[in-house]
Design a protein around this nucleic acid. Structure first.
Lengths: 244, 244
DNA sequence: GAGTGGTCTAGACCACTAT
DNA sequence: TAGTGGTCTAGACCACTCT
C-alpha cells in the first residue's frame, strides 16, 4: 500500500510523518495505550527509509506523545497525570508512600459561566457550565480545596452520574462518561492569604498563606475541557526545579 | 590522529562520545561559547561513522549543554541565567521590557557556616563562608530580599573587591574574580508569612505572604558554589508551566 | 568556494519481547 | 522463532555561513 503525506512539501519528510502521526492521536484515530504501526510497517506504507521513520518517531517521543519499548513496539502515552499533577504538595501516607488523596465533591450544579471562567474555557459569557466544589483529603487531613468548572455542552452526561459514584480521580470519569480525554494542562501558581472560607475547609487560621494553582486542562487538540482553582496550605507546598 | 574513548565498553559508542565531550566541558577543556570540533573532525579523531557522531551531539543538545548552528558549528552553551532565574517574578520596566533589577549588597562578611548552610554547600560545619544580604530593586521598588552564602575557600578574592564595584549580577563577578562558573542550579519554592525584617526590606505589611526561593548554584561538575534564600512579594509572583 | 550542520538513503547486525 | 526497536555504518545531496 502506498500512502502520501499531506502538508507543506518544503518541510522535511520526517516532520511531515510526525505531523501525520500526531494528527492520528489528536483526531482520535489512535488512542492512549494503542500501539503505533511498527517501523517496518511505516517504511512500507510511506515508502521512506527506516532512518527517516525513526527520526519522526523520535520527535514524538521527545514531545511526550509516544513511548517506545524495545522488542514490544511504540505506543501512545497515557496521560494519567491526575494523581501526579498535585506533585507540588506532600501527599504522602504515614508509610512514606505517595498516596492519591480522597476526592470529596461538596457541591455540583449547573451555573451560567462567570466572565473569567468563560474566558478561560473559550466559551461565550453566560453559557451553561457545571460548577463544583471539591475537597481533597489525605489521611483524613484536608489538603486542597478546589473550585472546578466544566463546559456544560461536553459534560452534560456527567450531571447524570450520582455524586457518590464519582471516585477520587475526575479525569478517568470525564473520559468514561463523557468521552472527554484530558491530555495536557497549563498551570499557574501564586500564593495568597487564606480567606475565611478556604481556612475553614483546610482547617487553618484565616490569613495563613495558601498556594493557589490555576489549571486549564485541554484535550489532545488543545480544546479547553476544564478550569479549576485549587488552594492548599503553603507550609505543605514544595516545588523543586533544576535550571541550566 | 586516533583517540580512544574511555568508560564502560558495554555502553553505546554515541553515549561514550557524549560522555567524553561532556567531560571536556565539566573539566574546563571547553568553556561556554567555545566551538566544539566539527562533525568531520570528530569522525576523523574517533574513527566512527558520521551518524554516530551526530547522535552523540544530539544527546548533548537535548541536555542543553551544546547548541548547533547550521553552517557555523556546534558551541558550548553559555549559562547566563542570572537574569532569567527570577523569571517567576514580574520584573518589567514601565515600558513593558524585561529589566535586570538593581542589586544592592547591604552586608558582606566572613562568617562560620551555620549547619544548614554547611549541609547545602557540602562543607564541614563551622567552615568559613562569605555571608551577604542583598536587595534587588526594580524601578526603585524593592522586589527581592536575598541572603547568600559562599564557601570562603573558592571565593576568598571576592572579599577584596570593593562592594561598590560589584554590579547588578553576581555570577559574572564570581567567574571573573574567582574563576568560579555557575552552570546550573537547583531551586525549591515555598511560601510563608513575612516576618518583620523581610516586611521592612520589601516595604510590605508584616504577615503578608511572601514566596521563598532557595537556590543551590553549582559548577559544571555539580560542585556547590553558592546557596541563597530569596524572598519576594507573593502578589508579584507568577509561575506558569505546562503539563502533559 | 570551503566548511558547516541538516536531511535522507539502504543496508547490517544486535538485544529485547512475545509466542 | 518472528517481530520489534537500538545501534552503527558509509555514503549522497542539500542549505546555510563565512570570507
Amino acid at each position: 500500500m502506498q500512502s502520501n503525506l499531506h502538508g507543506d512539501e518544503r518541510l522535511p519528510i520526517y516532520q511531515r510523518l510526525a505531523d501525520a502521526l500526531r494528527s492520528d492521536v489528536t483526531e482520535g484515530r489512535l488512542r492512549p495505550g494503542d500501539r503505533v504501526a511498527s517501523e517496518n510497517e511505516l517504511v512500507g506504507k510511506y515508502q521512506m527509509a527506516a532512518g527517516t521513520v525513526r527520526k519522526a518517531l523520535d520527535v514524538l517521543v521527545t514531545e511526550g506523545l509516544l513511548e517506545r519499548f524495545h522488542g514490544r513496539g511504540t505506543f501512545v502515552r497515557s496521560p494519567s497525570f491526575d494523581a501526579s499533577l498535585y506533585r507540588f504538595f506532600r501527599f504522602r501516607a504515614a508509610d512514606g508512600n505517595e498516596a492519591i488523596p480522597e476526592g470529596r465533591i461538596l457541591r455540583r450544579e449547573v451555573e451560567l459561566a462567570p466572565s473569567f471562567v468563560a474566558r478561560k474555557l473559550g466559551i461565550p459569557e453566560g453559557s451553561p457550565t457545571i460548577s463544583m466544589s471539591r475537597l481533597r483529603v489525605s489521611e483524613s487531613t484536608p489538603v486542597l480545596a478546589e473550585e472546578i468548572w466544566l463546559p456544560f455542552g461536553r459534560f452534560e452526561k456527567f450531571m447524570d452520574l450520582p455524586i457518590g459514584d464519582v471516585g477520587d480521580l475526575l479525569y478517568p470519569v470525564y473520559d468514561a462518561i463523557c468521552g472527554q480525554l484530558v491530555a495536557k494542562a497549563d498551570e499557574a501558581l501564586t500564593a495568597e492569604s487564606s480567606n475565611r472560607e478556604t481556612a475553614r475547609l483546610l482547617r487553618i487560621e484565616p490569613g495563613t498563606p495558601v498556594m493557589v494553582i490555576d489549571r486549564l486542562a485541554k484535550d489532545f487538540g488543545g480544546v479547553p475541557l476544564e478550569w479549576r482553582r485549587s488552594r492548599g496550605r503553603a507550609d505543605q507546598f514544595h516545588y523543586k526545579t533544576e535550571i541550566r
